[in-house]
Design a binder for these strands. Structure first.
Lengths: 112, 112
DNA sequence: TCACCATTCAACCAAATAGTTAAATAATTG
DNA sequence: CAATTATTTAACTATTTGGTTGAATGGTGA
């Protein structure tokens, strides 16, 4: 297992992006399908500009992709960085092996 | 699937704690076994006080526990919050299902 | 007790974060 | 073209973060 300093900055921005409840909520929203900025902003109690900035943080971390579509910007989730975060966490699963086993079993069932 | 606002602040501090390379390195170090503060600080190119603060961030996120042991403070990893982070990420695994499958297979082998 | 060792605390600083409002940009429709 | 709609940018502010140095705390051993 070699060190991978080149991944480090990626993990920084991925975990940083996930560290804000608004951004996690945006990811949850996008898990339901692509959406444009104002639709995503609607349930949040802050300005559109603020949501726009949060989306930029998510985009820079690679968690979402944004495509201009007419005058609308369509955002959709990209799971790749989530996978990277998952991968990092998994290295330490020995410290919660019991929970890991339970989760694995749970997924096993769901995953059919 | 109910909302769990009470977990939100926890996830904030967990992901926030993981978002810094020094703190992830400290976790990697502690994965090798408990250690005291100055031992942990030694490989890092910053003051002991700075490492001490990083350890406090990890402790507040619940990722480590610190027990006074004589004049030394012994730190050890607690995987529970890692499990919480893992759990959150897992909700979106449908967006990286292929990688998830590959990882699962990989773990399957390693996990015997 | 005295000196030492491990660690934290306090004060400070620069940079980043998260929000605001108002103006700018750019596509759409009448 | 003019008005509208969607979104970003700019400028500003308050707070947090991540680092520093130096002093304080508190256990250990001579």
């Amino acid at each position: 297992m070699v060190e991978r300093p080149e991944d480090d900055a990626d993990l920084d921005s991925i975990f940083q992006a996930l560290a804000h409840p608004t951004r996690r909520a945006l990811i949850e929203q996008l898990a339901g399908g692509p959406a444009n900025v104002s639709t995503l902003a609607e349930p949040h109690d802050m300005s559109l500009a603020a949501v726009s900035k949060h989306l930029q943080v998510l985009e820079e971390a690679g968690l979402i992709e944004v495509e201009p579509e007419g005058r609308v910007r369509r955002c959709h989730l990209d799971g790749t960085p989530l996978s990277a975060a998952f991968g990092w966490l998994t290295r330490y699963r020995i410290f919660w092996e019991d929970r890991f086993d339970a989760l694995e079993d749970h997924l096993e069932q769901e995953h059919q």
